[in-house]
Write a protein that binds this DNA or RNA. Structure first.
Lengths: 192, 192
DNA sequence: GCTCGACCCTAGCATTGCTAGGCAATCGAG
DNA sequence: CTCGATTGCCTAGCAATGCTAGGGTCGAGC
């Protein structure tokens, strides 16, 4: 049985290699540069190997997205845990979110801009995505205000952050006032 | 000279035909289905004709985006003009914006999700885009609140709307609570 | 009526995601 | 140890994509 175990382990390692390599390539040169050929070359296997791990390119994007969701949840939790009081927590959360999006544009794209074949707001939504939303909810729920459903408040706040992240990165918003925009958002939306 | 004029007119008409056909096709079957071959077939010309009007597919997307920006500006202005008082105006604006995005997903994608080769927040930003932002600014500027720059307030409000629009359409947010989310956004962000 | 130029089409290129088919190495049974 | 079977991988290829080169045709202007 040990042989099978070793093979299984090697397969799992190679799958991780594929995902991390796809992510690296995407961060370096953008998702357009992540072709199955280039990806195969980088992992030093032939193209069909990719398809023995994933149904297609979409699933690879999806895998990067899930990895990113876990990291983002961790980043948000780390930032809010280090802050004192609801207001500081929300501000830290917003900064951490936007910071993550700015530092990992390819991962952020995999999560929200590209089609990774992931189900959102469904019963079959993958755990990392649920958990990322939960991480937001933990700090945002406490500033939703009376009579406002915490989940819905989190959705709206999240949407605002998402809008800022994407519009800023796409050059639709000048990057200078980023910090002031965050302050305005927190001041107005959160009920302290 | 009349011959040249006629030719020029026909060229202009054909260019409009390309843009409206691309838009139709995108609305019907999504932008992925808008290939140069299919588009050429629909307008009953060969592919190279497209390239005598536009540098490439990107520019066609950009043309659809510009058309969409003009329409969106008109839709927003029409909605706000019919509303009484700042609060009603902002609510109407938000609804009109989200409604436009929901009813014209392909156009909205051309504007904000796809690369149409357009410059934003620049000195060489095309007029329709500037005007669309101006349409938002007209109604949002009056509820920015004291000490808050109207332009920046508009950016934040716009980003929030953009986030709601994209996340809702991508299935990231459940569509049921759309109206309540708008109310929350207006209540909190706008200073009446 | 003729010539020349604008106009547009056929054909092709490189690249993309994905798949079929075969080859070789490894495993299990005798 | 041998031999058939299975697993795992690669070479080669397909259809579709955006885009371009080159030639042929038709009409304008003298």
């Amino acid at each position: 049985m040990s042989v099978q175990e070793r093979k299984q382990r090697e397969r799992a390692e190679r799958e991780r290699l594929i995902v991390t390599t796809a992510r690296e390539l995407a961060e370096q040169q953008g998702w357009d540069a992540v072709t199955t050929r280039r990806l195969a070359e980088r992992i030093e296997y032939s193209q069909p190997v990719l398809y023995s791990h994933f149904r297609g390119k979409r699933e690879i994007i999806g895998a990067v997205a899930l990895e990113g969701a876990t990291e983002m949840a961790a980043a948000v939790r780390a930032a809010t845990a280090a802050a004192d009081g609801p207001r500081a927590r929300v501000t830290a959360l917003a900064r951490a979110y936007l910071d993550f999006a700015a530092r990992n544009p390819a991962v952020y794209d995999a999560l929200f801009e590209l089609d990774g074949g992931l189900a959102f707001a469904h019963e079959d939504t993958p755990q990392p995505l649920r958990d990322a939303f939960a991480a937001l909810l933990e700090s945002l729920g406490e500033v939703a205000g009376d009579g406002v459903h915490p989940g819905m408040f989190t959705e709206v706040f999240w949407a605002a952050l998402h809008g800022l992240a994407t519009l800023t990165r796409a050059g639709r918003l000048p990057p200078e006032d980023a910090e002031r925009r965050v302050e305005l958002l927190v001041d107005r939306l959160a009920v302290i």
